[in-house]
Design a binder for these strands. Structure first.
Lengths: 233, 233
DNA sequence: CCCTCACTTTGAACACGTTCGAAAATGCAA
DNA sequence: TTGCATTTTCGAACGTGTTCAAAGTGAGGG
């Protein structure tokens, strides 16, 4: 080890203004190029050049090229927060709230659809950009909490053994919709709208039907399965 | 363009024995290293060295590092074919057949779980290794046909509007199970077994319940949705 | 025997993401 | 101001996947 700073986490004393400016400039330069020519074909050298720094500087502020996308994602999470919370207030029904959440997200990301692809591209939980990995735990949990609130005061009554998993299941569902959207080539991503409308109806119908006695064996199975796979947390 | 051969597709005259031997040697060397240290950290130079050729030769036989994994996948498909067909004959019930198919696959890949991860890691249909992409169309369609046969003479009766999609849905389901298995850290991948058993029960129960009049609105929704999303093919 | 021509093999070279030692800039206490 | 530690910047260098012009190989025809 040398005298170099350890992780790009300045010790916060003075001069934090200027360095934040630089970090911001690099991020912005990167996003412009990402949007223009895609994540893969963007070059760290080019990003650095456009931000008027040397490559090394880019790596002083961002651990890796992936980390830049991650920073974009984190910023998105912060910027979307108010709109998402507002969406919860706008409607009391689960349907309205889910429409609100997913709608807000797709709107927010609409000009960055390809870039979002860099995030959804990795299934492997060990990959730093995977939506299922450790690196994204914080964001994911905040999101799950949002769905928990969406469910909380709405009129959905579920069997006790599946209810605790509903927020996580809804998060998964939302993830699927977004994933589909990212790779949806239809004009205006019309197919995603169809998919969302259709699956949402089915979802709500399923929740309603869940209380019929006929489906009791189903609850039991589902509850046991969820407990086993998710563990106890 | 030079006098170089165009695509690694020899014109078949003489000497095809030797070149196939070389191709095989490269593939084998690569697989050994992939299994030992994973796909990512394996090096084309190392693969070439272990196969007693120069890097260039490796690229003469395989378009890319990814293409080597693809070759592994194609070989797997061929080698598994008899066992999969046998599994269909072994049982007449859908449950038995699904268990057979998934069981055979997981058994076959058990010594290459990490390597399979290189294939399942990519969601993006444009990625050459994505299970959903064009590059894997042939393999995917053969697989879907297998599920079609599995459904064909079994006793499942489904509403006419969803039945045509069942093979593709089952393929998706299987894909999900395999994906879970690839990243399943539990000892002996026990969680995957739990997941498979549980979801399979739910799946079969759903198919049974599908004929109850109560669920008619569900069929309608599902049928319309599937038609819209899958298109007409 | 040697020439031809397609097939095969070679390894230097390229662009990429990333690392790192060192220098420059900055901030602060004396 | 000076001296010193910390933060920031730099860019050459490394290992990677991949490309490509050049050279090697060998079977069949002259």
């Amino acid at each position: 080890m040398t005298a170099t700073a350890e992780k790009g986490l300045p010790v916060r004393k003075a001069g934090l203004k200027k360095s934040e400016e630089t970090r911001r400039r690099i991020l912005e330069a990167a996003l412009v190029i990402f949007r223009e020519r895609g994540f893969a074909s963007a070059t760290m050298r080019e990003i650095a050049t456009n931000a008027d720094v040397a490559v090394g500087a880019a790596y002083y502020y961002f651990e890796s090229k992936d980390a830049i996308v991650m920073a974009f994602y984190q910023r998105a999470q912060e910027e979307m927060r108010p709109a998402l919370l507002a969406a919860l207030d706008r409607s009391r029904t689960l349907e309205g709230r889910l429409r609100g959440i997913v709608g807000e997200k797709l709107t927010y990301f609409s000009s960055n659809r390809a870039l979002l692809g860099a995030l959804t591209a990795h299934t492997d939980p060990k990959h730093p950009l995977s939506p299922f990995g450790e690196a994204t735990t914080a964001i994911r949990e905040e999101d799950v909490a949002l769905f928990a609130r969406a469910v909380a005061q709405s009129a959905v009554k579920l069997p006790k053994n599946v209810a605790p998993y509903l927020p996580r299941l809804l998060w998964m569902y939302q993830m699927g919709i977004i994933l589909f959207w990212v790779y949806d080539d239809s004009p205006g991503q019309a197919r995603t709208k169809t998919l969302f409308d259709g699956t949402l109806k089915i979802l709500l119908l399923t929740l309603k039907l869940a209380n019929f006695p006929l489906l009791r064996p189903m609850h039991k199975l589902a509850g046991e399965l969820l407990a086993a796979v998710y563990g106890d947390r």
